[in-house]
Design a protein around this nucleic acid. Sequence first.
RNA 1: UGUCCAGUAGUGUAACAGGUUAGCACAUGAGAUUUUGAUUCUCAGGGUGAAGGUUCGAGUCCUUCCUGGAUAACCA
Length: 554
Amino acid sequence: MSEERESLNFIEQIIEDDLKSGKHVEIHTRFPPEPNGYLHIGHTKAIWINFNIAQKYGGKTNLRFDDTNPTTEKSIYVENIQKDIKWLGYDWEDRMYYTSNYFEQLYNFAEQLIIKGYAYVDDQSSELIAEQKGTPTQKGTDSPFRNRSVEENLDLFRRMKAGEFKDGEKVLRAKIDMGHTNMLMRDPLIYRIKHQTHHNTGDEWCIYPMYDFAHGQSDSIENITHSLCSLEFIHHRPLYNWFIEKLGIYPSRQIEFARMNVSYMITSKRKLKKLVDNGIVTGWDDPRMPTVAGMRRRGYPASALRLFCEKTGAAKRNNLQEIALLESCVKEELNKTAHRVMVVNDPLKLTISNYPENESEELTAINNPENLEDGTRSIPFSKHLLIERADLMEDAPKKYFRLSQGRNVRLKNAYIIHCDDVVKNEAGEVIEVLCSYYPNSKSGEDESGIKAKGTLHWVSEDHAIPCTVREYDRLFKVEAPGVTPDVDFLDEVNEASLKVNENAFMEPALKSYHPGDTVQFMRIGYFSVDEDSSSDRLIFNRTVTLRDSWKNKK
RNA sequence: UGUCCAGUAGUGUAACAGGUUAGCACAUGAGAUUUUGAUUCUCAGGGUGAAGGUUCGAGUCCUUCCUGGAUAACCA
């Protein structure tokens, strides 16, 4: 038996090594979002890495809200983040934590640091402190308050906690090295005063720890074995380790991976918010948004997002994933599940001259040929139909498979028809197509022996139901929006990212579909029923178009 | 200009401790099948940033260089 070795990403390699060496017997990761915005495609990768890797090695993943800044955090985000993670298919079981629940512990850690002579209270302004930091090429200078006694530091810090000082009056700093090549090691701030109500702890605290003095310790408190974060935190690792070492607590290990970027999308919470605030999109869940909520509403299945993460993997180099791969994952998943239905977007009348007036018949359609268990449904057929205007061409080239005078086409699930003539208005536009049908060419029982190269979708005019189709396109017209210097990302917005079509007609069976259902409009694309739909008018969001190799040949 | 990280087809990602023609996916092109010009299937093109060195043998090790990214918030 040739055993193929499964290829591992660099994180899995580290974990397997740790398991093999006995460093760890169980893997424990965490996903630590800050509740100050919605989750987006970039977070999807972070979620996938953290949950998937633990799952793979039989470990656990905690959800932890990294909420150390009361200014920007809100419980509404806490709710939505949970909803999005669950929808993505991941479960933190009973392990949902808040960094803010560790405030007492964190405070004690800070006192310990002071007692050990590793932290001091600084009275200087933020401007002065910034000045003394130096530059990457220039060493910093010591604060005049750097050598306060332990007693004085402790007293001051306790009074900070007690609320004796105003915001910005004092800070607690780690005492490391103002000449360090890593600027984060130049006596970083670890506590600041903020007289502000916190979404979780209310007014209990007026001092809040900074990220660097909260994250690693929280990992340690939760016994996180591998703390997986994005590359931008790489410079923080020495500091992360420094606190763990000085405090003598459980040594979680920080490992950095490259965050995922996707072409034509942005993942900056600030910029995303601007799109919402400027009314460029209808909200955080607008189907054009790269947010989890937006993609869900667009009709992207969670399984497609997971597949996308899997296919793009985890590595340490900056990357820009092509949106085509994401869309290919979406289509791969939807191809397995979506019912094939018929909707005409740009209707043109088609009359079958030799079909009796005022009569109709019910034809049978397979819901999904990729999954026969989904059964069949019936579709009404009659003399007067609507077809896609683009499916008719006069004087068509030989390679054209659709309708043209004198040619045959198959009407999907129905009959083969022959195009006899077209009717035009005064402006010379075709307003109706006249055809005749071959009664013995009915789908499933075709005895006509006639060949038709093309197959068209259609609806019966008298039975069709008007509906709205929102044709979404990419939100930005450049591959990497928001990164070109001196270019406002708002100028890179694709102004034609949404075209609303109120003139579409759907087959009647679609009436029984509900918001969130995603179907395939045959020959067009995948569409998801939007939550804005009402019982008398369905609204569809275009999820993604089908591949169209004809378009490219033209 | 310090420090750190990274360079494998168009885009991503593999190649387990140096070992056959550098694999896979998407994208691209050609063809077959098809009652969706979809799906499916087959085939093709195209790659180790550069130069030296070590070695029987280098994407992998060493040296130098080049390129890209990160990095100076009382944000996370």
